[in-house]
Amino acid sequence: MKVEEEAQAAVLNRLRRAQGQLAGVIAMIEAGRDCKDVVTQLAAVSRALDRAGFKIVASGMRQCLNGEAEDGSQPLTEAELEKLFLTLA
């Protein structure tokens, strides 16, 4: 399965946001910031990564509904999609 072009931009945006947030968390730890602030920002990173993963899985589900992947390969099976989804849970 290849990430659809439309979904790819959204996924990359979320991953870049998570990358920036993670750099912020590292800087906060190095600066000795309060653990509550660090954990709050770390949770934001986690949510951004989860959203990127869910977008990728949703793209795969859409390919399954259409019956074919964009690159002409067979779409993921229901079991494969379920496994991917549960990986994010």
Rank of each mutant, 00 (worst) to 15 (best):
N66V: 14
K83Y: 08
L15P: 02
E70N: 14
Q21I: 08
A44M: 01
L84E: 11
I29F: 02
E80W: 03
G24P: 01
L76E: 08
C64M: 15
D37I: 13
A23I: 11
A7E: 08
E4C: 12
R47D: 11
L49K: 06
A69Y: 01
E5L: 13
Q21R: 09
L88W: 06
C64T: 13
N13G: 10
S73T: 14
D34P: 07
V25Y: 07
V11W: 00
V57A: 00
F85K: 00
F54R: 06
E70G: 11
T87P: 06
R33M: 03
A18G: 10
V25E: 05
L15F: 04
T40C: 09
D34K: 04
D37W: 09
N66Y: 14
G53V: 09
D34F: 00
L88T: 01
L86N: 13
N13H: 09
A89H: 07
G67P: 07
P75C: 02
E6V: 13
A7T: 10
E78S: 14
A27R: 10
A27K: 08
N66M: 15
R14E: 03
L12Q: 04
I26T: 11
L84V: 05
T40N: 09
V45E: 01
V39I: 15
E80M: 03
G24K: 02
L84S: 11
D50L: 10
Q19C: 12
S73P: 07
T40M: 09
K55N: 11
G60E: 06
G20Q: 06
I26P: 03
R16H: 07
R14D: 01
D34R: 09
T77C: 12
K55S: 10
E78G: 08
V3Y: 02
A79I: 02
Q63K: 13
R62G: 12
C35V: 12
T87G: 05
A48R: 10
